[in-house]
Write a protein that binds this DNA or RNA. Sequence first.
DNA 1: CATCATATAGTCAAACTGACTCAAACCCCG
DNA 2: CGGGGTTTGAGTCAGTTTGACTATATGATG
Lengths: 249, 249
Amino acid sequence: MLEDTAQTLPIAKQNPLAVGGAAASAAASSLAVSTVIFALRPDEESHLKTLWLPLVRRTRDPHRDLWALPGGWLPAGEELAAAAGRTLRETTDLSPRYLEQLYTFGDIDRSPGLRVVSVVYWALVRSEVAERASVGDNVRWFAADQLPPLAFDHNRIVEYALWRLRTKVEYARIAHAFLGDTFTLAQLREVHEAVLQKALDPANFRRSIEASGNLISTDQHVAGARHRPARLYRYDDRANDHDPPGPAL
Amino acid sequence: MLEDTAQTLPIAKQNPLAVGGAAASAAASSLAVSTVIFALRPDEESHLKTLWLPLVRRTRDPHRDLWALPGGWLPAGEELAAAAGRTLRETTDLSPRYLEQLYTFGDIDRSPGLRVVSVVYWALVRSEVAERASVGDNVRWFAADQLPPLAFDHNRIVEYALWRLRTKVEYARIAHAFLGDTFTLAQLREVHEAVLQKALDPANFRRSIEASGNLISTDQHVAGARHRPARLYRYDDRANDHDPPGPAL
DNA sequence: CATCATATAGTCAAACTGACTCAAACCCCG
DNA sequence: CGGGGTTTGAGTCAGTTTGACTATATGATG
């Protein structure tokens, strides 16, 4: 059975979308789960933080040696979101701070040979922790806007995931997923600036964030910098307003 | 093969999520496509327009005799959106004016027996045309907010579809999907009011719609009513701004 | 202690929003 | 055939939000 075969392979060798010839004749279509994993890291040249994501190298056809999104066949007894989270952990040794279904891609010709339908999730992980992320030979982090040609339709998938991230309204939860439990407004603003790719006025940013009521201010301050110490804030979980009644983590 | 079996049945008898015992042992999981179809019709008592949707009666277990979303197994050679559109036409004799993927539901226990993953689409059809919609014994239209207990997790799916419809930002395209090619601002406002479930000030509505730049005014007017004739407008397809680069019809 | 750099507070005008007024234009009724 | 009724379509006005900007606070640095 397809799922079992995939399960026995190390994750980096699993091909999220392809199968061998024998499997292809066994089923008319197969269901895979892939995950677009975003982290924030400082860019080499510009000191600004930018979006990065981990990809895995394919070790078999089709698209052997191309980079692809982490993923695999959906195991029979595993929930969709659980499969995405497991894939993420196996690839990066990290836990998702945010995980949401992105879209289901099922074009007939998106994979040569077998018809593959992929349920794709997108996830956010902590930036600092992503630094020490396990990066084996078959896993590598790429700048999200400088990707090489990927396997299958994965370039298009990443593009869509980026669009969703940038047009997502409820930034509060998302931006805070990139940070620790407490953070300064400057750090939070840095996240917004990295995602939106434009500078934000510190004063106006503070005003709008405070008005949104999603943050609780702590008594702690961060000293050590060469300027007035910044207050630490905490994300307010209670204020998860306008929640989607349906899915969404 | 599952798909072939389903294909030979009349659509009303296809069960979107269930299979017979023989099929259940053949595959570990199965892929279905269902569609939430919205139309706008005048309510019985209140003269206001409200959202309605067609459901099909299940003719076999599980959930025999319960109402369910139209759908069926994904045929091997059919695109996901095409399957949703075909289901829609087979159920209602209508063509979708708007069709978009909603979400993929795959909880392990959402269907007794076999693990079923359903890719769900949501669609909008013209109100006037929906009046003469084919309503056989196994297809019936229901008010969207007064549904009976449905098969599987379909109540939850409809709830989520309603939420998406109401929180969708780009109302221009959506509202116009309920109408003909040309329409008055009053008709357009009626759609918005029905979806949002609240009255809108006509003058302010006009101002905001005109500012959005999504409408082209024609020279025609609608006479015959007991008041000043209203100008007819047309939806501006060019101004499909802020488009998602990825999926979405 | 002067200076630097950012935190934080405040100002101001433009844009936007909701509630409202008012004339225009047509049908209906007497 | 003219007035009442009703909706269209334009405009006003106050309150709110938004973007650009100025000013002060405060610890680190030399």
